[in-house]
């Protein structure tokens, strides 16, 4: 890996110096968090709740992905495998086993994490672009597994998945009820990721991102840290996939396909690699774009590709990174 510029050329790398704040959020992040919570509370009254739920699922997915690329410097090109598999398991659990939504979501997260143990164990043996290629190939293997495995329903997917009753009591059939569940899961995931980043474990993650050999020389077993970070990220991706499945009542091959892995990279890149709020904004941009440009067909792919190119050439900090740079704050 070139030592001249690391992947995240964002001025976040002041490891060790923590600004005072609440729960590890500094002042500007606290304002952004309050805005986010307010937006979560108001959004379903102004926007179509299902659309906002979809957005939140992808936002959590992108945050989970960003935990790897933004804070450990690991570029996974196969995160759709964990997202989609979490969705399949949650769908199967809710439909066939009749589990309640919270248990289905937990099952999705656990399977995502379990798959992450295997994938991470293999992928961390190589670095840089090889890591990206390995995660991508493993995800393709999962995709073919899902095409053939009987429980996924092949091309049809799992359909008509019931949302069920939360804790066996509260029916989730109305979109508003489901919305609050999704919002709570998203916020919990978001805070969990924030907590990881600001833990001692997270400091080592960032040290690995900045300079892995030096971190090794300080006595940290970097492979173990990378693996744990990978598993955490995959587990959260599984949770995101599980929630998405329950929202739409359907789990299909789209969610395990490579293009989904590409989309989450795009979301994170657009929002800002290595920023806490970036993936949320990025997910909003990409999902919103897909929603409003849906009738343009394949041009959406072209636009997405164009955004990739523009981000890489001119806009490497992403939206949130640029804002943070403009106001000299860390978001």
């Amino acid at each position: 890996m070139s030592s001249e510029t690391t992947l995240t050329a964002i001025p976040t790398g002041v490891v060790g110096k923590q600004a005072p704040g609440i729960w590890g959020f500094n002042g500007s992040q606290l304002i952004a968090l309050l805005l986010l919570v307010a937006a979560l509370g108001l959004a379903p009254f102004f926007l179509y709740p299902v659309f906002v739920m979809k957005l939140l699922c992808f936002a959590l997915f992108a945050c989970a992905f960003n935990l790897l690329i933004g804070y450990v410097g690991l570029m996974s090109f196969g995160h759709a495998a964990y997202f989609g598999m979490g969705g399949y398991i949650a769908g199967h659990a809710a439909k066939v086993w009749g589990l309640t939504p919270e248990l289905s979501i937990i099952a999705g997260g656990l399977v995502g994490a379990g798959l992450g143990v295997l994938g991470g164990w293999l992928a961390i043996r190589r670095q840089g672009i090889y890591f990206a290629m390995i995660t991508m190939a493993l995800a393709q293997m999962v995709y073919f597994f899902c095409v053939q495995a009987p429980f996924t329903g092949g091309e049809d997917g799992i359909q008509a998945i019931p949302r069920g009753k939360l804790f066996g009591v509260i029916s989730m059939d109305s979109d508003m009820a489901m919305y609050w569940l999704v919002a709570v899961v998203f916020l919990m995931g978001f805070m969990f990721i924030h907590r990881i980043i600001h833990s001692p474990f997270g400091q080592v993650m960032k040290a690995i991102r900045e300079n892995e050999p030096r971190t090794t020389s300080l006595g940290y077993r970097t492979d173990d840290y990378k693996l744990v970070a990978f598993i955490l990220s995959c587990g959260l991706a599984g949770v995101a996939g599980a929630v998405k499945t329950l929202v739409f009542g359907i789990a299909t091959l789209t969610d395990v396909h490579f293009s989904m892995s590409g989309e989450v990279v795009l979301m994170t890149l657009v929002g800002g690699l290595g920023t806490i709020f970036g993936p949320v904004i990025g997910a909003a941009v990409v999902v919103g774009m897909q929603n409003y440009l849906a009738e343009m067909g394949a041009w959406v792919t072209v636009i997405q590709g164009g955004i990739f190119v523009a981000c890489v050439l001119a806009f490497r900090r992403g939206i949130v990174g640029e804002i943070g740079n403009l106001f000299k704050v860390k978001l």
Binding site: S2, T5, T6, L7, G305, I307, V309, V312
Partner: peptide, 17 residues
């Protein structure tokens, strides 16, 4: 002069286009 991964992202974007 940048990290390899930016090249990967750029060529991925070009491929999509």
């Amino acid at each position: 002069k940048l990290d390899h991964l930016y090249g990967l992202l750029l060529t991925l974007g070009l491929g999509l286009i």
